[in-house]
Amino acid sequence: MNAQTDLRLDARITRRTPLATDIVGLTVAAADGRPLPPAEAGAHIDLCLPNGLVRQYSIARQSEAGYELGILRDPASRGGSACVHETLVEGATLQISPPRNLFPLAADARRSLLFAGGIGITPIIAMADALHAAGADFELHYATRSRDRAAYLDRLATAPYADRVHCYHDDTPEAGRLDAAALLAHPQPGTHLYVCGPNGFMDHVIDRARAAGWAEADVHSERFAAPAIDTADDGSFAIEIASSGQTIQVAPEQSAIAALHAAGFDVPLSCEQGICGTCLTRVLDGEPDHRDMFLTEAERAANDRFTPCCSRGKGRLLLDL
């Protein structure tokens, strides 16, 4: 048993509804009927799925009914979204984590620009709700490949901030195309940018922001999938356990966390892509080969933590285990 398991909550799917092509909406409530912990805009929860996988999904809204999630069936699913779409019917029970927020709104922002691509609308629409409730200045730009694959269009159209929402669909060019370069051309002090969606969309928006001179501290993003990494040149490396001196060899085709699990170490695992930070492990000595999307550049440079689900070692790593 580990701390991650101890924090799990018993939950039930109380509503399931189609939101768009290949996108299902789920409302998750506490199994005992009690209120769920409060969730900030940008937060996500872990779903402990019936097939044994643990996956993270953003909370699009929290209401008295529970957490509302919008989940895309990914054609390249590694088993998570496929399980959600095929097995999580109304009345199904599962365990969830309390909300965690790795994508929070900046408290000192004078203005916020929200960019969502595809299913990236889930945390972004929660941000729009929160900013409107706070009387803050913001705009929301939502791009999809087609209108039928755009979730929450009705909710956005009837929102009290509908005049701040701009939607773009590749199959309806008459509505206009997202021009990120023009929208981000003149960064202003106190304006913050939030981006979520497929990697290609996010890279496009963030690259345009950087080209326009946006400060890195004012650009916030959350990825649902890690970019592909060339592993052809990966070699083996050694992990030493500080508490016992035990040495574990990690093979070229093996992840560090797989080697740790095989040796009997109960390091928690969730996304398996270096996105969520669940497996983050303290490094006492050695240099990690960071391949995650969780740590900031400054945190990577410190070399005192790494994500063994995807990152490796440049030689021996001494771990605080």
Rank of each mutant, 00 (worst) to 15 (best):
M1N: 13
A3Y: 09
L7A: 15
L7K: 14
R8C: 05
A11L: 04
A11W: 01
A11R: 01
T17C: 00
T17G: 00
P18V: 01
D22P: 01
T27G: 00
A29I: 15
A29H: 14
G33N: 02
G33V: 03
L36C: 07
E40A: 14
A43H: 01
H44Q: 11
I45C: 05
P50T: 01
P50C: 02
N51M: 03
R55G: 12
Q56M: 08
Q56S: 11
Y57M: 06
S58G: 06
S58R: 04
A60D: 05
G70K: 01
D74Y: 13
S77D: 11
S77Q: 05
V84M: 01
V84I: 03
V84L: 00
T87C: 03
V89W: 08
E90L: 03
T93L: 08
Q95P: 02
S97N: 03
P104A: 15
P104L: 15
L105Q: 00
D108V: 11
F115H: 10
A116C: 11
G120K: 07
P123T: 07
P123H: 09
I125W: 05
D129S: 04
A130K: 10
H132L: 11
A133P: 06
G135A: 02
G135D: 02
E139N: 11
L140H: 01
L140F: 04
R147N: 13
D148P: 10
R149L: 05
A151G: 01
D163G: 13
D163R: 12
R164Y: 02
H169M: 13
D170M: 04
T172W: 08
T172Y: 10
L178Y: 09
A180H: 09
L183D: 08
P189C: 07
G190D: 04
G197T: 12
P198S: 06
D203I: 02
R208S: 10
R208Y: 01
R210Y: 12
R210N: 14
A211N: 14
A212H: 05
W214G: 08
A217W: 08
V219L: 10
E222Y: 12
R223F: 09
F224Y: 09
A225M: 14
T231R: 14
T231Y: 11
A232G: 13
S236Y: 03
F237E: 04
A238G: 12
S243N: 09
G245C: 03
G245W: 02
Q249S: 15
P252M: 12
Q254S: 13
S255L: 04
A256S: 13
A258F: 02
E272Q: 15
E272S: 12
G274W: 00
T278M: 14
C279T: 04
C279F: 00
G286D: 05
G286Q: 04
P288I: 03
R291F: 00
F294D: 08
L295V: 12
A301E: 13
R305F: 13
P308R: 01
C309W: 08
R316Y: 07
L317C: 11
